[in-house]
Design a binder for these strands. Structure first.
Lengths: 184, 184
DNA sequence: TGTACATCAGTGAACGCGCGTTCACTGATGTAC
DNA sequence: TGTACATCAGTGAACGCGCGTTCACTGATGTAC
């Protein structure tokens, strides 16, 4: 049963969106092609009409995950409200909801270690996504070396959430409270 | 062919050491029990004489990896040379060698996302390891809120290396150079 | 200290299972006239 | 605009493979006397 070009494009979007969520929750090796296709409402056999292999989907999903997660920040910056958007981004990043729900969160703590073991396409998408976040954060800063300070802040946020998710509750609470108190 | 108690303890140490390296290089799901046993010079069947299951080995290996990686820092602090030891630790952390060789590096960027999906034992070992690093870094600082500043610095280091490993070369170079210039 | 036997560390085959990928098939869509 | 045919999105079975774990077996170690 062939499907229209528009329907195919919608299928692809659903696969990428499903993958973007599942990859953040379960990791690259913990997310099977069959799982992600089922999340998108299809069976696994049709996968290769859309992607050459699993790696290609991972690369597309990483780009989509960055775009989705940083959309409010990017929109605020585009609207000329960079400082408020950046403050909201930091508060959201260090919030309990973000720590508890990696599937909707930043791709850095959720997927970076897996992407480090992936191909060039996924790494390029990852680098571009991280750079876009830092560009937006830098737009909210004033004074010298804004871009450098944005990079260090983003690295600190990602490291804090990464450590919190992997630690016992007491350690997680300590690193998060500390990060919230001093967001650089 | 039964083996002496001392030989069994040595076998266990070899398994844990092999796992500590392979888990950092390949991740939890990318490191099979058979691979790690082969690294330790044994076949996979004997594994369950030492550990109840793969999760138990992961927890032991995380503790060993933290101890191995932070040993120079801990030794320097114990010798009363905390500031020099902390400076060496930061330089080593952000060095090209550490970025290129996760198998001998900090467990945070290499394994945290996997440990976040593991059981309580692995998370407890992870939290204890991270806390020990921060305790040692705090010993090198002066002034108020030393422990908080040590946590933020460690989170920034881990985030920077995590992002660098997962990004294209240009982005990796930028985040590393930035982290080196401002280590908080 | 010497002997007889129970224990158990390590081996290698086997288990059920899920993985990424391939393929024959279907029928609706796209295209050529 | 209508028709005939080629295309191809999606299905579901199948492939070879590696996974975590179990188990019967071995022979050296540990223990009881």
């Amino acid at each position: 049963m062939r499907v229209s070009r528009a329907a195919k494009a919608e299928s692809r979007d659903r696969i990428v969106a499903a993958a973007a969520r599942r990859l953040r929750a379960a990791g690259v090796e913990g997310s099977s092609v069959g799982d992600m296709m089922a999340d998108a409402g299809m069976t696994h056999g049709g996968f290769y009409r859309h992607f050459a292999n699993k790696d290609a989907l991972v690369a597309a999903a990483i780009a989509a995950a960055f775009a989705e997660f940083s959309e409010p920040l990017a929109a605020g910056v585009a609207a000329g409200e960079a400082p408020a958007a950046a403050a909201d981004f930091v508060a959201r990043y260090l919030g309990d909801g973000h720590v508890a729900h990696p599937e909707l969160g930043c791709p850095v703590p959720a997927t970076a270690a897996d992407i480090a073991r992936s191909g060039d396409a996924a790494r390029a998408a990852f680098g571009a996504g991280a750079t876009a976040v830092v560009d937006a954060l830098a737009a909210a800063l004033t004074g010298p070396r804004r871009r450098e300070r944005a990079w260090r802040q983003f690295a600190m946020l990602a490291g804090a959430v990464l450590i919190a998710r992997a630690s016992d509750p007491a350690t997680a609470a300590e690193v998060l409270a500390t990060a919230r108190r001093g967001s650089l």
